[in-house]
Nucleic acid binder design. Structure first.
Lengths: 243, 243
DNA sequence: GGGTTCTAATTGTCTGGCATTTGAATCGCA
DNA sequence: TGCGATTCAAATGCCAGACAATTAGAACCC
């Protein structure tokens, strides 16, 4: 971990990579304290600001945390699913917005992944998950809801479904896919009829999940995907025709 | 974006958050040049090293890139799927290793997600994907292959399957789930008989994908998951009994 | 006109220092 | 002896100033 050739590239990036590798390989374990900035500077033969830049890089990825004071320093962070999800969501959102991913492609990925969770959710969901889904359906049926609020509730509904699978790995992965769709969904205007159809399908999903019926859940999700794709297509077509 | 109260938390983190928000909200567009470090320092009323720490945080997330020289500076980066995948893999791997996720849970998530890609891969795979899958199967059947090399080939095979779906969003999400399993798979020893069974199932998958048969692909994937879970269970049970 | 040199702008890095926080040791006092 | 207040030391957070390295463009000369 000490190696650091006097090569061309950024020293702080090299140092950050060395420490990151040490963490990944198990050379540094969770909650272990790293040497102080001054000691690291001496080890790598660089100045303290350079070490600090390296540590900030790692902090940005939640790999370490810092603490001030006498017994302070940089500590290897336990990367929790809760901490990783916001980053995953941010990255996924930016990937979609910066790469001109079509609504169709993003929607397809989202529903394909969500269907992967459906049978598990039907088998394992707790009453809490079901209650959240019902509550979001109720919110979606409120009149006067803005399109954005409707989409936000839609996201909450689907995240409850995913969480119902009781698998943190799935919840983490899906968080990105589901949340990242929200900006795309916000480009769509929902008529009252559109909302009614979506709410009906949401109710179908909740019913199937409550009954523990994975196959029916799958079918309802597929129907919802078709509905969403059709809706988006008509909205975009109308917008293209108007301009 | 200029706001930055003299509050408690790290200035560099606040500045990084401000710039990140500007990028996410569209206030800064791709390839746009940020003000120079000196200008940012003046804008936020902090010193240049503090600004630099903030920029390094953003660079660690691939949100910006820096360039030296006369027309250099920090530029908003186009976050590509290729650049985001390694980070996703690192994060997923650490999440599994630091949170005592059981083999069963991780394996379940991986195959659930992979099944989500199967029908699409069967419909859209190119000859390239198919050739990669066949090549990896061939490699797996080589005698004298170490367990680690066998696992690495397994990962390559499954990534080719996922990429066959032709959906970058899926490929990105699945990269984390598939690669992160590798350290867990490396804890397993494979007998010749185990390998033969896995290779046979891989062949079934490749055949089904070649035939464009999504349902058969799904069935083969499910059989492979069962095989993998059983194998892991017996290995862990034997290990527990021996100690 | 083309090639060369110069210049300015910008990032990368270092030195040295001060402020702030925080835990622990020390001291004073009952 | 026991306990609270004080002091101290270590560490991070932040800053000012400076120099080196790099790079693109301008100026210049032939």
């Amino acid at each position: 971990m000490k190696i650091d050739p006097d090569n061309p590239a950024d020293l702080s990036a090299q140092i950050a990579a060395a420490i990151r590798d040490a963490i990944i390989s198990g050379g540094l374990i969770v909650d272990e304290r790293l040497p102080s900035e001054a000691e690291l500077a001496e080890q790598f033969d660089v100045s303290r600001p350079t070490v600090r830049e390296a540590l900030k890089r790692l902090a940005a990825q939640s790999l370490i945390r810092t603490q001030r004071g006498a017994t302070g320093g940089a500590f290897v962070n336990r990367l929790s699913f809760e901490a990783a999800q916001p980053q995953q969501i941010t990255t996924s959102t930016l990937l979609l917005s910066m790469n001109a991913v079509s609504f169709e492609t993003a929607c397809e990925a989202r529903y394909a992944l969500e269907r992967a969770c459906a049978p598990l959710a039907a088998a394992r969901r707790t009453p809490d998950h079901l209650a959240t889904m019902r509550a979001e359906i109720h919110r979606q049926s409120q009149p006067g809801l803005t399109d954005e609020a409707f989409c936000a509730s839609d996201v909450a509904f689907h995240r409850a479904l995913v969480d119902g699978a009781g698998n943190p790995v799935l919840s983490y992965q899906l968080a990105g896919a589901v949340e990242a769709m929200q900006p795309l969904m916000n480009m769509i205007t929902f008529t009252a009829r559109d909302r009614a159809r979506i709410i009906a399908l949401h109710t179908d999903i909740a019913d199937a999940v409550e009954a523990g019926d994975g196959a029916t859940t799958l079918a309802a999700l597929t129907a919802l995907e078709t509905e969403t794709q059709d809706l988006a297509q008509s909205v975009f077509a109308a917008r293209a025709a108007r301009s």
